[in-house]
Amino acid sequence: MSFESFRLSVQALAEAGWLPSALSWGFAVNALLAGLIVGPMLGSLGTLVVVRRHAFFAEAVGHAALTGVAIGILAGEPYTAPYGALFGYCLIFAIGLDYLRGRTGLSADTLIGVFLSMSLALGASILLILAGRINVHILENVLFGSILTVNGVDLALLAAVGLVVIALTAVLYNRFMLSSFHPALALVRGLPVRRLDYLFVMLITVVTVASLKIVGAVLVGALLVIPAAAARIVARSLAGFWWLSIGIATFSTLAGILLPMQFDLPVPSGAAIILVAGSCFLICTALRALVPGLKGNVL
């Protein structure tokens, strides 16, 4: 079955009342498919982001994307998909930051604060130059996500990135986990801890850029962190942690895409996704407080 006939089938089912009526629109099916990739990808990687304490880093990469978009437009890339500058700038930002961590004696949060401020200043300066050439309101789509703009190219890119990231995460999961849990032990076991660190920040960057259209630059970091944080609160094993994080991320993404369309709410997809994920986090917090068995033995 081709992608086009699949989409038409979904639209037909929605029109017949078997699926939510929002799916009678072609762009909504695109967005839903994107959500089915983004959710598991961010949910899986998010568990490692939380364990490695890279939450602020993921947020910073998301914000750096704004400058990447500005550089792309300045360089003549299409303003709806300046992927060359986005990937290039965000990778330089992430690798540069990781390189200087441990070489400056500064804590990670201080270094991220410095990089983030510099990046936003650069982005703001370039946007001022661009103000006369483009309607800067199109940047709202980059900042907060817009399912209306997800096209076949975006889906293909997302699917390719999703496949690579999920495969690498699955194969290297134990290595990433051990090198975060106890780096000295990981080194003795022969793991290339520093190289794993670089690979991990590159994965975060690539995932962030590929998810921009759905979740938005400001909020993609949050979707890496919130489902995993919620799962960590109530999970009792690594398996529970991983599966629950994926479940919450996927549910939040799909609900955040469908609910505003279904109920005609004027909310960008990114914001709706994060509001759903945030609600899941609050529910998990309440569950932990109410169910004694979920507290574990750690106060």
Partner: peptide, 19 residues
């Protein structure tokens, strides 16, 4: 971290992803 003793030792065994 929700890592049990079994998770920790299984992670070190490296045979299957810990999840």
């Amino acid at each position: 971290l929700p890592m049990t003793v079994r998770d920790f030792l299984a992670t070190l065994s490296g045979e299957r992803p810990a999840f």
